[in-house]
Design a protein around this nucleic acid. Structure first.
Lengths: 197, 197
DNA sequence: GACTATAGTGAACCGTGATTCCGGTTGTCA
DNA sequence: TGACAACCGGAATCACGGTTCACTATAGTC
């Protein structure tokens, strides 16, 4: 999870420890409250001062961005596993989407990022996203060969649809779920839409 | 567009005029910048003081909510027209969704509201939304009878999907359009997904 | 034309929460 | 163990923008 930074001198032991704690706390806090959670909360939960958070991440946005990036990395890992599984490619893709859906469901910050306008966060996570998309594309290519997916489907389509799913999550998580919105239903509709006819 | 308020004494002429100007300016400003636009901007563009805006709308959120409500009313009107058109019901629905898509595309505040977590605004617009959903349901019922729509499709599905579409719009409007996201493509995928197989 | 309830004005206020900053700590290395 | 760079803490600062309010202007009415 923690990359070895090549161009930078290694962090002092305590700093490394704190950075880790901060990321963990941030993951919890932002998952629960989205980006409206406060840096103070993160710092407090991590048992450090605000200043320490800022030593590691120049802005709140940068911290959120790193979390999002990590999540994309995780998704990419899952996509890689999906590629290894010996099941029908389209089913593998569908299951992957379902798994991602559940993960997004538990993470308000990710929902906001995917459904929202937050360009900066998005930019930071771009490389990780690109890899995820590449892996997804591989899965889709296989499905094409098997003829089980819509002929013109692309990884980009899946990305868009998952972003859209987050919008519905926002609505079905919050309060009364206005008009009977149900993200799992939304997801199944989309999966069906991708299927070959 | 402007309802006749029953329980309240009529506004003074200048007040009515200003209220109208404020709504128009707000429509422009919020369409362009979403809810991050400032009340000051709205007031300035309308040629009135901030205080005047607050005389008409207790909070910024209330102003946005009214705009959203009006938009839903507009959508409902369009849905009614669609019901009157003598075309195949599913096509009518699809065209309606396309038209709504274009409208949403030009309105950042609507995108944010539909894709976002903004429960209060949503609540205010609920009645208008309910009517829109009812009309949509009628269109869908007809399509069911014609057998041209997915047998289990509901108006709620359409609502969810349109909300999802707004998420993609956010991504394709902003900057680089990250991963080749294209909301029109997203929309067509969804329409296809709703079609009977 | 005068009177008054309504309406308009915008500088000032205020809460919020991100960010800074500097005095005190602590790892690391010789 | 001493020295110093790296690091930590968290009160204070600061920017921002929604909201208020004391005062002025004006539509509507007699």
């Amino acid at each position: 999870m923690t990359e070895t930074l090549s161009g930078e001198r290694p962090l002092r032991a305590d700093a490394r420890r704190n950075r880790q704690r901060i990321l963990e706390s941030a993951r919890q806090v932002f998952s629960e409250f989205g980006s409206e959670a406060q840096i103070n909360d993160v710092a407090h939960r991590a048992g450090v001062g605000v200043g320490t958070v800022y030593r590691h991440f120049p802005t709140k946005e940068a911290l959120v961005a790193e979390l999002v990036r990590q999540k994309f990395v995780l998704f990419a890992a899952q996509a890689r596993e999906a590629l290894d599984r010996p099941v029908e490619p389209f089913d593998a893709l569908a299951d992957l989407m379902r798994a991602n859906g559940e993960a997004l469901h538990r993470d308000a910050a990710m929902q906001q990022t995917l459904a929202g306008f937050d360009d900066e966060v998005w930019a930071t996570a771009q490389p990780a996203l690109d890899e995820l998309l590449a892996l997804t594309q591989e899965l889709i290519d296989r499905a094409h060969r098997a003829g089980t997916i819509r002929p013109d489907a692309t990884a980009s389509d899946v990305g868009m649809l998952m972003c859209g799913l987050c919008a519905t999550m926002a609505r079905s998580t919050v309060a009364d779920s206005a008009a009977g919105f149900d993200w799992r239903r939304h997801l199944e509709l989309m999966i069906d839409g991708l299927r070959a006819r």
